[in-house]
Simulated scan of single mutants.
Amino acid sequence: MTTSPIDYQALAENIKRWGLALGFSQVGFSDIDLSSHEDALTQWLENNYHGEMDYMHKHGLMRARAQELVEGTTRVISVRMDYLPPEAKFARTLKKKDHAYISRYALGRDYHKLMRKRLKQLGDKISEYCESFNFRPFVDSAPILERPLAEKAGLGWVGKHSLLINKSAGSWFFLGELLVDIPLPTSEKTANECGSCVSCIKICPTQAIVAPYVVDARRCISYLTIELRDAIPEEFRPLIGNRIYGCDDCQLICPWNKFANISHEGDFSPRQNLDNVELLTVFSWDEATFLSKTAGSPIRRIGFNSWQRNISVAIGNAPYSAENIDALNDKLTTAEPMVAEHIHWALHQQDNKRIAAEQHSDFPIKNQRLTERLIRSVEKGLPRDA
């Protein structure tokens, strides 16, 4: 700790260096003035675009007023951490309709604890150089507009899908903040370079991006599969496809993600083979297995019932198979009422596909199944009578 006058410009450069050493991909600094975002936030809430996320409405404009969240705050240190691993399997998993698609960010260890721990380490390091210094670390854990703050801190710009985009790193990264009470120099805000591109708006399966930079959470697959605890509205179920936890479509289509950086953080690598797992495999888990397989993962927080609900919808959207019917009927005997509703829907979807297959087939569906089994056996190099 020093008692001499602090050179805050030099301290800011040191903070960036310390942040990189802790594994953050970029560090920036902003003031706390988000008054220009208050009208848009108010309108978003009045439109009920937050859905059943009552905490969004509860805190209201505090999200744009960091000083009300932590008294004495004058600056925000924003950080980003890349999470894209080598050999990501996005497109392949989406195309395999009998496989489960889980949003890329959730395949590894829960980033909240990892980043918060390192933000605290960064704050403790700063404390060694300041006679008086107070800080609070946050990672998706506070009512604060983190993306506009990160934008002001020069980490990127808020895209039309409402996520932060970095010109040289795309959008596959997490954000975190340190709210501090020292007058650090602020970073230069990044220019918005979305231009006339509307790819993210067009690609959204449920048309949740109702206007550039405005997302109606009630239509968003991430909200429907993660935040929503009740039944998923029927109009959205066919559109969810095989996405059982979150959705990455708006990022997958974004042209800036060709510049995305590969993460070398081992904790963000896929666990439990969840980047290449069949729907029936995860559907077969009982609650104890679910809790065991998702230990340390952000997936666990949705709970077993939502997990089964989401997979039921995905199986309903999958190609018809007798195995799907058997699995759905088996789960129906023990399912909670909310889950059972989705299983019944999935059974109806599968039955419609069975009927359609029979009507458009030149031979009975039983023979079709035998043929499919034969093809699978040959592909696996097994004897034909196995």
Rank of each mutant, 00 (worst) to 15 (best):
I365H: 04
I302H: 14
E71T: 13
L175V: 02
I262R: 09
H50S: 08
S263D: 03
Q350C: 06
A208F: 07
A64H: 11
P212C: 14
G60A: 14
R118K: 14
L239N: 13
H57K: 15
D216G: 15
L163P: 09
G159V: 03
G246F: 04
M62R: 11
L155S: 11
W172H: 02
L178F: 00
E188K: 12
I375Y: 12
R17N: 08
S222H: 05
R384V: 15
G19A: 07
F135P: 14
S321H: 13
G156N: 05
V210A: 09
Q349P: 04
A288W: 02
R237K: 15
A327M: 14
G23L: 14
Q67Y: 12
E278H: 12
M62Q: 13
G381N: 07
R118H: 07
S222Y: 04
I355D: 03
L179S: 11
A150F: 10
P5V: 12
G28S: 05
N14A: 14
R354I: 06
G123F: 07
A142G: 10
V139G: 11
W172P: 01
S168Y: 07
T93C: 05
W345A: 01
Y8Q: 02
V76K: 05
P212R: 14
L11W: 00
N48Q: 11
S171A: 15
F290H: 03
N273C: 11
M56E: 03
S127A: 15
I6T: 10
A340L: 13
E188D: 09
F135N: 06
A169Q: 08
E87L: 02
N324D: 10
E188Y: 06
V215D: 00
I232R: 08
S141Y: 00
E287P: 14
Y83W: 09
I201R: 09
Y101V: 05
V339Y: 04
F304D: 14
A150M: 03
I226W: 00
Q9E: 13
P233E: 02
L107I: 02
C220K: 01
S263V: 11
V76A: 06
P148I: 00
P255L: 12
V282G: 04
L374R: 10
D82V: 12
H360Q: 07
C250M: 01
S361Q: 07
H344R: 15
L155C: 10
G195M: 06
Y49G: 02
D249N: 02
A142P: 11
Q272D: 10
H348T: 13
L347C: 06
I343S: 09
K293P: 01
I32T: 11
V70F: 15
I315S: 07
A231I: 12
D140F: 08
S284G: 09
Y105E: 09
H264I: 09
Q121E: 12
Y101S: 06
K120Q: 06
M81W: 04
E131L: 13
Q308N: 08
K202V: 08
K380L: 13
V339S: 07
G156L: 10
A386H: 10
G241I: 05
G123L: 03
A231Y: 08
R118G: 10
